[in-house]
Computed example of a mutant assay.
Amino acid sequence: MSAAPDASDRAGSAEGGDASDALLRPVRPLNAFEDTVERLLQTIRLGVLHPGESLPPERELAVRLGVSRDTVREAIKSLADAGYLVSRRGRYGGTFLADALPAPSAEEVRFTRADIDDALRLREVLEVGAARLAAGRTLTATERDALWNRLADVRGSETEAYRRLDSRLHLAIAEAAGVPSLVPLVAQNRMRLNELLDRIPLLARNIEHSDEQHEAIVMAILAGDADSAAQTMTAHVWASAALLHGFLD
């Protein structure tokens, strides 16, 4: 059973905010185990929780996901067996994300040009729309701080953490759109996209360019400039498309 997280873990979990709420939502009854594994994987692989951070207690996860504690326990055990989670005993025990997550295998799945285009076109629909909606809203101080913090995180990240923190920024933009059901859609598409991105190298110049575009997108959202936010997000999406087609086609 997962113990309640200590103060540092609670602080880390709070950073996830609405993304955690949106991803850890009730699952479909007929696929309770599979959906529970999927939701937990989304929070792990999209960086809503940090490596080494504690999962919420089993009781809380069961309530949030609308499943039994047995289902949560089975899902956690499966992910622990796969190397994503570790259990610790004692006063500060519980279930924690592994410090080093399993690396994807380049041989697991083959992608066609159609697969790449499908993921990228859906990304354009979802994320350009999210940026435009976010810029059109009057954001709360908490929402504005979340965007700034996520932007600062990705700009200051080490190379090995870049994909995770990049995902967190894009989820924060989806949260800022003010449409709760949009966040899990962006997260699901982001999982597909990261499977593709994990198959190509991180290029220093591309990271610099992405950071510039990230800042321009966030600045446009905070300034309420919907057209600029949407245009820059569109350019950002298709910059990734160019690299993916170049390396994977």
Score class of each variant (00 low, 15 high):
Arg164Phe: 03
Arg123Ser: 11
Glu60Thr: 14
Leu41His: 07
Arg91Cys: 06
Ala176His: 04
Ile173Val: 15
His245Glu: 04
Leu79Met: 03
Leu193Val: 15
Ala229Asn: 11
Ala223His: 11
Ala114Asp: 13
Ala82Thr: 01
Gly156Val: 04
Arg91Ala: 15
Gly12Glu: 03
Ala226His: 10
Arg45Gly: 03
Asp9Leu: 02
Pro51Leu: 02
Arg45Pro: 11
Ile200His: 00
Glu158Lys: 13
Leu23Gly: 07
Glu53Cys: 06
Ala220Pro: 03
Asp211Thr: 06
Ser167Tyr: 01
Asn194Cys: 05
Arg88Asn: 08
Ala131Tyr: 06
Pro184Lys: 09
Arg10Phe: 08
Leu196Ala: 02
Leu122Phe: 03
Leu79Cys: 09
Leu126Gly: 00
Ala82Glu: 13
Val48Met: 01
Ser13Pro: 07
Ala80Gly: 06
Asn194His: 13
Ala177Gly: 06
Asp225Arg: 05
His209Tyr: 11
Leu101Lys: 11
Pro5Lys: 07
Ala174Cys: 06
Ala141His: 03
Asp117Gly: 09
His245Tyr: 07
Leu49Gly: 07
Arg190Ile: 10
Gln231Asn: 15
Ala204Ser: 15
Val109Ile: 14
Ala229Glu: 01
Phe33Pro: 12
Leu185Phe: 12
Ala229Gly: 06
Ala229Lys: 04
Gly12Arg: 13
Asp153Thr: 02
Ala152Pro: 00
Arg69Lys: 12
Val154Lys: 07
Glu38Trp: 12
Gly83Thr: 09
Ala7Asn: 09
Tyr162Asp: 11
Gly83Asp: 01
Leu30Met: 14
His236Ala: 08
Glu53Trp: 02
Ala223Asn: 14
Ala220Gly: 12
Ala229Tyr: 06
Thr234Gln: 13
Pro102Trp: 09
Asn194Val: 11
Ile173Thr: 00
Ala176Gln: 00
Thr43Asp: 03
Ser8Gly: 09
Arg39Met: 04
Ala103Arg: 14
Arg190Asn: 12
Leu147Lys: 02
Glu74Gly: 07
Asp81Lys: 12
Leu133Arg: 11
Arg69Ser: 02
Ala22Gly: 05
Pro57Gly: 05
Ala187Leu: 04
Tyr84Thr: 01
Gly129Tyr: 07
Leu30Pro: 02
Tyr84Met: 09
Glu108Gly: 02
Asn189Met: 03
Leu147Gly: 03
Arg59Met: 08
